[in-house]
Simulated assay, not measured.
Amino acid sequence: MMAFNWSDQIIDMGHGMRLSVRLGKHSERHTGRPVLLLLHEALGCIAMWKDIPQQLAAHTGCDVVVYERQGYGLSSTIELPRDDDYLLEEGEVWLPRLIDKLKLNNVILLGHSDGGSVALIGAASMPGLVKGVITEAAHIYIDHLTTAGITEAVERYETSDLKDKLAKYHGERTDLLFRAWHETWLRERKQPMNLRPWLPRIECPALIIQGREDYYGVPEQVTDICAGIGARAESLFLPDCGHVPHFEAREKVISAVVRFIKQHNSA
């Protein structure tokens, strides 16, 4: 079995921003095999992926990059209020800049929830570099389940142990990140969130995954994403699965990722 090693870096992105990155590399690697770049959810961080990056590396043979967006983990902090279009800035500016800093030129983006939305924008913005995009529970607009799910989460944050669970990962940033999430998604906006215009610019194959029981997004999120991308996109609905497919349907998600990579990468 080939050795596989992880290393942690802090990448200076300029403009006072530093991002925390974890790099996983095989000791030997097939030439041309893509790098899997993982993008976390709205309340996520590197640690919250748990063993998923390692499992993906083992099953695909790909090197893996996991990073924390601004405000999360060891990356630079954020200030409130967060802009309505923060997902666009992440996908159009910071993700391409990070890929350039890491000197990656053959990337498959795998994003969960917010990270899935950022991955779609990134794929549209970097057609030459991104060879595939996989999303779990991505949003291209705010639907009634999104609003209801976040509203319910706010109540749980105030009345249950949800805050304590998140604090294990986010520490003193917990309140800040939770506010950044729910205040941005629940407030009145000048323009409704709409990522549809970016979808036709995605030239690479796409796998769009969602749990049938996802309480944060309607099934049309998937069908509308696939319709916007066109024939290059395929959908995967997972039964008895909620908002976190890589944990709730782990084996199915890993198998789907392996199949996707084999299908669209000959190396």
Rank of each mutant, 00 (worst) to 15 (best):
S20P: 01
E68A: 13
S76H: 09
Q9R: 10
A57H: 07
L43K: 05
P34W: 04
I11N: 03
P53T: 00
M17E: 14
I10D: 05
R97A: 15
L19I: 11
A47P: 04
Y67E: 05
H30T: 10
M17W: 14
S27M: 10
G44E: 04
R69T: 08
I52N: 08
A57V: 09
H30N: 10
D51M: 10
I108R: 02
W94D: 06
V107G: 00
P96I: 04
G24I: 00
R22C: 08
I52R: 00
L36T: 05
E28K: 11
M48D: 03
G71D: 04
D63K: 04
Q55P: 00
H59Y: 06
M17Q: 14
E28Y: 11
V66W: 04
E90F: 11
D100L: 08
I78W: 05
V21W: 01
M13W: 10
V66N: 01
I10A: 08
C45N: 14
T60I: 04
K103V: 09
L88N: 02
E28S: 12
L19M: 12
D83M: 14
I46Y: 02
I99K: 05
R18C: 13
M13D: 06
L80R: 09
K25G: 03
I78D: 01
R82I: 15
H59C: 07
W49T: 02
P34D: 07
T31H: 15
G91I: 06
S20V: 03
D84T: 11
L109G: 05
L109P: 00
E92D: 13
D83V: 12
S75A: 08
K25E: 14
G32V: 05
E41W: 07
L102Y: 13
G44T: 07
E28I: 13
M13A: 09
V93G: 00
I10W: 08
G24L: 00
G73D: 02
I78E: 03
K25V: 06
K25A: 08
Q70M: 09
A47D: 15
L37M: 13
V21K: 03
R33Q: 13
L110Q: 05
H26M: 04
G14H: 06
T31V: 12
E41F: 10
G32F: 12
I108S: 04
G32N: 12
Q54T: 13
D85A: 12
D12K: 07
R33D: 03
L98D: 03
R18P: 02
G32L: 12
Y86M: 11
M48W: 05
G44I: 01
D51S: 15
H15I: 08
V64L: 07
S76M: 00
G61T: 08
D12M: 04
K50A: 07
V64R: 02
G44R: 02
L56G: 03
R82N: 11
L37E: 06
R82D: 10
T31L: 13
H40Y: 10
E92M: 15
S76N: 09
S76Y: 01
M13F: 10
T77C: 09
Q54N: 14
M48K: 05
M13S: 08
L38H: 05
V65N: 01
D84Y: 06
